[in-house]
Design a protein around this nucleic acid. Structure first.
Lengths: 243, 243
DNA sequence: GTGGTTCAATGGTCCAACCAATTTCTGCAC
DNA sequence: GTGCAGAAATTGGTTGGACCATTGAACCAC
């Protein structure tokens, strides 16, 4: 009945290397941007071949945790801890309309929930921070006469951060990354995101008023406008076939 | 303005290897489970060292696209196409009560949205598949007089799959993994998940009736019962400090 | 058939060397 | 001293060859 005997692993050198390295990073309190030891030094210290070290680092590089620069060194790109969970998300045929809509559906689910949670949990400091980002965004909108991806993103980040659940920010950051990978100006729509502008303040108002369902509703409206923009853009270019 | 001239890569051997291999997989129409050429053969055919081939395969292995079995060979684990978009998601710190609640909040957001999308998009085949999983789950519930994690999980997986958006399933798989990381029987609650049982069928009914908002509402009820169980469990053991 | 044994194939690791990009140091001109 | 070009050291990237550990198939004795 107990068919759950975990398979024994006699050899897992590279995994051991990664665990040791994660421990080292924690020990030395290394943060993003900092340089970690040379491959040669790691190989010597850990008593494994440089080749094994390289395989381990290759894994971390693929996970986006680390960046290697030839002639310079290997640098941390994100925080690492020994007990991380890695989940490679893969989207087949990523850079097309369907892929963008897929990320937007995730964003709709998370954005609505996060806004609601934020309305419940955000304290005075968090609300002030969100309002600051909102002001920055509106200022950028006025001076540059259009949406600014950067300030817009920072506003949403602030909301996610105030939701009290770090997973929201991490997942949505991945979606954002995917969204902006190939589309600086998605589908050539010039005023992309323009329609979503007013909803940023309405979302903030509902959050400040600690009205979860109101915040959720406004967030849904915002996403709906982005979806409309996207569909409009897709309709504009008849053949988006990049195969 | 066009500061997006892609940097030329004088050296990107392993990337080239992956591209070539992806082309090969497509050419030969290889599917999951099938065996790839030997490392030695790949090295010889591609005119690169076996070590380079290994680094490339290590990347794919990290992305979950491929599985290597010593003494046997390298096997495809998922469909592979040359233009895939990879987005590693790394989640930190989910192994305590707060972490479990965090994963549940994500699950609430995604489960509700997926159920609604599923009610809109699922065809006859998908609905039949979901019902099959539901029957299996109810059968397991009767015979073993309690919730079965395995069958329960398969039911939800079927719903996510029928949502038409592969990201749902992938993200929720990460949450599931995190959830089950340290808690086989979360917090020692014996009949954990018992209360959520009836909602599985109500969710299915709303999906089968193509009633998005109904499905969403039932999904929310289900998650609420799980949250209650979790809180009850946390109250049971006064000190859950495993640090 | 059952249960070992042998043996070839395959991934895992190691080593030593060299290549290519980057950084650092050195020494010269001023 | 300052500035800068060129040499030298550092570091990741690649190569080729060797050996180990595991797997699976063929084979054999019983």
């Amino acid at each position: 009945m107990t068919d759950f005997l975990p398979p024994i692993q006699t050899t897992a050198r590279d995994d051991a290397v990664l665990k040791a390295l994660a421990g080292f990073v924690r020990q030395e309190a290394l943060g993003p941007g900092e340089k970690l030891p040379t491959e040669r030094i790691l190989a010597e210290r850990l008593k494994v071949s440089r080749n094994t070290v390289r395989e381990a680092l290759t894994r971390w590089e693929g996970l986006g945790l680390v960046e290697r620069r030839q002639g310079s060194g290997t640098y941390l790109k994100a925080a690492v801890s020994p007990d991380m969970l890695h989940m490679p998300l893969t989207l087949a045929g990523g850079n097309d309309f369907a892929g963008l809509m897929a990320t937007l559906e995730i964003r709709r689910a998370l954005e609505a929930e996060a806004a609601a949670l934020c309305a419940i949990r955000a304290g005075k400091a968090e609300i002030a921070e969100i309002e600051r980002k909102l002001d920055l965004m509106e200022e950028a909108f006025r001076t540059r006469a259009g949406m600014s991806s950067e300030e817009d993103w920072e506003f949403h980040q602030a909301v996610f951060r105030a939701s009290g659940n770090p997973l929201f920010e991490q997942i949505i950051a991945a979606m954002y990354e995917m969204f902006h990978r190939f589309w600086e100006h998605p589908l050539g729509v010039r005023d992309f995101g323009h329609a979503s502008f007013p909803y940023h303040r309405t979302i903030f108002d509902r959050i400040a008023a600690h009205d979860p369902e109101g915040a959720r509703a406004e967030a849904l409206k915002l996403i709906a406008t982005v979806e409309d923009d996207l569909k409009r853009g897709a309709a504009n270019l008849k053949l988006s076939d990049r195969r």
